[in-house]
Simulated assay, not measured.
Amino acid sequence: MPRAQRLLDLLQMLRLHRYPVTGTALAAELGVSLRTLYRDIAALQQQGAQIEGAPGLGYLLRPGFTLPPLMFTEDEIEALVLGSRWVADRGDERLAAAARHALAKIAAVLPSPLRATLDDTALLIGPGTSQAAADPHLPAIRQAIRGERKLQLRYCDLKGDESERVIWPFALGFFDQTRVVVGWCELRQGFRHFRADRIRALTPCEQRYPGRRQALLKAWRESQGIAAQ
Rank of each mutant, 00 (worst) to 15 (best):
L95D: 03
G53F: 05
F175N: 06
G126M: 08
L153S: 13
R115T: 00
D120F: 01
D89R: 15
P210V: 07
W220G: 00
R94Y: 03
R208Y: 00
D119R: 15
R165S: 09
E29W: 01
S223A: 15
G190Q: 02
G211Y: 07
E29S: 14
I41Y: 06
L153T: 11
K159P: 00
D119Q: 15
R192V: 00
P69E: 04
G211W: 05
D89H: 14
R3Y: 00
D92T: 11
F72N: 03
V32E: 06
L67F: 01
G23F: 11
Y59H: 12
C185S: 14
L82Q: 06
K150E: 12
D40P: 07
Q143W: 11
E29Q: 15
L82P: 00
D157T: 10
A196Y: 04
Q45C: 13
L16E: 14
G160C: 12
R200W: 01
R146G: 05
A196K: 05
M13A: 14
T66E: 13
L187T: 14
G83H: 00
L10F: 02
Q207Y: 01
D176N: 08
L44G: 03
W168N: 09
L95M: 09
R221D: 05
L70E: 15
K105P: 00
R212I: 00
D161W: 02
P113M: 09
L103E: 12
I125L: 12
L80N: 01
H101W: 05
L217G: 10
E93I: 11
S33K: 05
